[in-house]
Write a protein that binds this DNA or RNA. Structure first.
Lengths: 256, 256
DNA sequence: GCGTCTATATCGAAG
DNA sequence: CTTCGATGTAGACGC
C-alpha cells in the first residue's frame, strides 16, 4: 500500500489525527516537514536545556535534521543534527515529537500544545553551492603565484602535518629560510597569531630560523601587537572570489 | 487600511499575485514567513556564491533573518543575519526576493521559479532558553568551590583582561604561585592549549613562576602531548548541568 | 572513529 | 563601533 506521492501538503489548524497523518506521510515520503506550533522543548545531551511554551517554527528534514526556530536570530534555539531519528507519540491528547541522536547520546523532545500549520515538501534538489572567497582559494592563489607573498618565496607543501597541528602553507624565502604561512579569509585575531606561533615553534625545534607570516585581509589591533611581540610577520591578502568547477550532483542520463 | 491580523495564513500553489499578497501581509504583520519553492540563489558579500535551481525551504523572520534550507544538513545553504532588509520585485512574471545587509555590505537574491507553498505565522514567544552545562557554569562551580581544582587553590579573578587576551580564572595555589585556569566545557584541543600558553606567557613577563591548568572533561591526544611539552597541567572537570535563574522576558502585568 | 581546522561562522559581553 | 572568546558550534578532510 503506497502513500500518495504529493509534492506538497498542508493543513491549517489541523486536528491531532490530521497532524499524525501528515507527519507520517511526510516522514515516509522523505519530505521536509514544517510546523507552526505553540510548544515547549526539552533537550538533554552534551548539555541540557528547557524552553517554556511559545510559538515556534519546527523543521524536520529527511536526513534527520531537526530545527526549532524562534521568531528571532539566525540560529535555531534547539536542534538535532543529520542522522538523528525522529518519532512521535500521543500523551493526554497532545503530540510529543522526539528526536534521538546515538553518539553522542542526545534527546530532543517537543510537546506540541497547539499546531497552527503542518506542511511537508517533497523537495528535489540536485544542485550544490558554488562558493567563492574561501581560505582554500587563497591557498590555491598563493600556490599558483607564490610571489604574491614576496619576491622569491617558494611554496613547498600545503597542509603539512607537524608535531602539533597542520601548517596551511610551508615554504622557503629567497634566502633559504623556512617560512610558515597561516591563512585567514577574514580579519585575523589573537587566535590566528597563537596558531601561527605554535607552528613556528614546532619547526624551530628542527630548523634554525623560521619565519611565520600571517596572511589575511587585515589584523585586529590585538593581533597586530601580539604578532610584533612574537617577531612574526603580516602579509595583506584578500581571498579571491573566483568561479570554481561545479561540484554538485548533476542530473545525468543514469538517474533517469 | 489595516491588514487583517491573522495568526496563520497559507496557500498552496499560489499565483504570483497571491505570493505578493501573502508576502506583503506577512512582512507588515511581523510574521515568520516560509516558502516551499523551486528557486535559484545568488549571494555576494564577505564571500560570493551561486546555487542553481532546486527545491528549498525559505524562512524570513521579523528581525530580518533570512534562511534558505536544502533538504539536507543542519545549516542553511544561504542566509542573511538579523537586521537585514528584505524586499521583492517582479521580473518577467517571476518574483525575486532580495535581502540586504548594510555592514558588511551583503546581498542575497532568490529567484522564485515556482512557489509550492507560502505561509506566515504571527508567532508570540516570551520565553528564552535555559541552558545548563556551559563553560560559565564551570566557572561558577570553581569560584564557589576552588578546592575542586586542588587543595589550597584560591580564585582571585574571573575573566581577567591581560596583555594579549582574557584569562578565564586567575588565582594562586597553596604555595603562592600564580595560577591561570583555562576552562573548556568539552574535550580540549590544541587550540585550547595554545590559548592557555598565550595567557601564561603574558603573566610570566611580570611574575616569576606561573602555572597554567587546562580544566576540561578530557583532552585530545595532541592536546595532551602539547600540554606536556609546554609544561602545562590538566585537571579533569565536567561542566555541571544546573538549573539557572530564568532570564527570559516574562509576561508581566505591565505588558497587559 | 578521533583529530585538526575552517566558517559568509553566529552570538554575547566588554571596552 | 571593535575586540575577544564560547558554541549542545557544524562540516570537511585526513588518518
Amino acid at each position: 500500500m503506497g502513500v500518495a506521492l504529493m509534492k506538497v501538503k498542508s493543513k491549517e489548524n489541523p486536528s491531532v489525527e490530521e497532524v499524525v497523518e501528515i507527519l507520517s506521510e511526510g516522514l515516509s515520503n522523505e519530505a521536509i516537514i514544517t510546523l507552526f506550533a505553540h510548544c515547549s522543548v526539552f533537550y538533554d545531551g552534551r548539555a541540557k536545556s528547557e524552553l517554556g511554551a511559545g510559538d515556534r517554527v519546527i523543521m524536520i528534514k529527511p536526513d534527520g535534521t531537526f530545527l526549532i526556530h524562534q521568531k528571532e536570530k539566525r540560529v535555531p534555539v534547539n536542534w538535532q543534527p543529520p542522522g538523528s531519528i525522529v518519532s512521535f507519540q500521543i500523551e493526554e491528547g497532545k503530540i510529543k515529537l522526539r528526536s534521538v541522536r546515538r553518539k553522542p547520546k542526545e534527546i530532543l523532545e517537543v510537546e506540541l500544545l497547539k499546531v497552527y500549520l503542518i506542511s511537508y515538501f517533497q523537495a528535489e534538489d540536485y544542485e550544490a553551492l558554488n562558493l567563492m572567497g574561501s581560505e582554500a582559494e587563497m591557498a590555491d592563489l598563493i600556490l599558483q603565484n607564490p610571489s604574491i607573498i614576496e619576491e622569491g618565496f617558494k611554496a613547498l607543501q600545503k597542509e603539512k602535518p607537524i608535531k602539533h597541528g597542520i601548517i596551511d602553507i610551508y615554504g622557503v624565502d629567497r634566502d633559504g629560510n623556512i617560512v610558515v604561512l597561516e591563512l585567514k579569509r577574514r580579519r585575523a585575531d589573537l587566535h590566528a597569531v597563537s596558531q601561527l606561533k605554535r607552528y613556528v615553534d614546532a619547526l624551530k625545534e628542527e630548523h634554525g630560523s623560521v619565519r611565520g607570516i600571517l596572511v589575511a585581509p587585515s589584523l585586529t589591533s590585538g593581533a597586530e601587537k601580539l604578532l610584533k611581540d612574537l617577531g612574526l610577520e603580516f602579509k595583506k591578502l584578500n581571498p579571491p572570489k573566483r568561479e570554481k568547477a561545479r561540484k554538485g550532483k548533476q542530473k545525468t542520463l543514469d538517474m533517469l
